[in-house]
Computed example of a mutant assay.
Amino acid sequence: MEGAEGNAGQPGPAERSHRSSVSSVGARAADVLVYLADDTVVPLAVENLSSISAHELHRAVREVLQLPDVALEAFALWLVSPLLEVQLKPKHQPYKLGRQWPELLLRFTNASDDDVAMDEPSLQFRRNVFFPRRRELQIHDEEVLRLLYEEAKGNVLTARYPCDLEDCEVLGGLVCRVQLGPYQPGQPAACTLREKLDSFL
């Protein structure tokens, strides 16, 4: 979790596994980077990084994003790397878990020693796996829905959510409509679709 953030802006797919969540460490303060599902970065200036809890960081992210109270239950902080993903409990201290990451990898993965040495987690704001689907269906806040949508879309596109072909086609059509808007005769739709097809299906 330590180290300098190497990319300005949003990381591409190749860089996502190498992003860091602590951009600078001082004696008492640090800039913590929390990633959203769409790779947007939420920078937080944090005092006493080594002892701050996931609950406190979660609250800070909610304040920056101006999310309603339902976000407290709908989302959680995660430590994520290519080798392991861990949803944090409110009492967890992300910095300390980041320092213990190699031990967690050795305990919960079959990764080689070289892979363990190179792996570094990022801090992510994601859907809480324990949040009931029935409650999710009751959410009306647009920003919360957008965050849930972006995460679900990414999970479908990376085959984390298994879908049959018909569902994939319907979901691809919905994503196309969301991103491109309604069909308008006379627009070069085929060219536009071809360029973005991999982000729809």
Rank of each mutant, 00 (worst) to 15 (best):
G3E: 10
G6C: 07
N7R: 14
G9C: 08
E15N: 03
R16N: 03
R16D: 00
H18D: 12
H18T: 13
S20G: 09
S23H: 10
G26W: 07
A29K: 13
A29M: 14
A30E: 05
A30I: 02
D38W: 02
D38M: 08
D39R: 03
T40H: 14
V42F: 05
V42P: 07
P43C: 10
L44S: 06
A45L: 04
S50R: 14
S53E: 02
E56D: 15
E56L: 10
L57C: 07
H58W: 07
A60K: 13
A60R: 15
V61R: 08
V64Q: 15
Q66G: 14
P68M: 05
V70N: 09
V70M: 13
A71Y: 04
L72W: 06
L72H: 02
L72T: 12
E73S: 13
E73F: 05
A74Y: 01
A74Q: 04
A76C: 15
A76L: 13
L79K: 10
P82L: 06
L83A: 09
L88W: 11
K89G: 04
P90S: 03
P90V: 00
K91G: 09
K91L: 12
H92A: 06
Q93V: 14
K96H: 04
K96D: 02
L97G: 01
L97W: 07
G98A: 00
R99F: 00
Q100T: 06
Q100M: 08
Q100G: 02
P102T: 05
P102M: 08
L105H: 08
L106G: 11
L106C: 04
N110M: 05
A111S: 13
A111I: 07
D113K: 12
D113A: 14
D114I: 10
D115Y: 07
V116N: 01
V116E: 01
M118K: 15
M118C: 14
D119F: 11
E120A: 13
P121E: 09
P121Q: 08
L123R: 04
L123I: 05
Q124F: 02
Q124H: 11
F125I: 01
N128H: 09
F131M: 10
P132I: 04
P132A: 04
R134N: 07
R135H: 08
L137P: 01
H140M: 05
H140P: 00
D141F: 00
D141T: 01
E142M: 01
L145T: 00
L145M: 09
L147S: 08
G154H: 03
T158N: 05
A159L: 13
R160F: 00
P162E: 02
D164K: 14
L165I: 06
L165W: 03
C168D: 09
E169L: 15
V170L: 12
L171W: 11
G173A: 13
G173Q: 09
L174M: 05
V175W: 15
C176H: 09
C176Q: 09
V178A: 10
L180Q: 13
Y183S: 09
G186P: 07
Q187W: 12
Q187D: 12
Q187H: 13
A190N: 05
A190V: 11
L193V: 13
R194S: 11
E195F: 14
L197P: 00
D198M: 03
S199N: 03
F200H: 03
L201S: 07
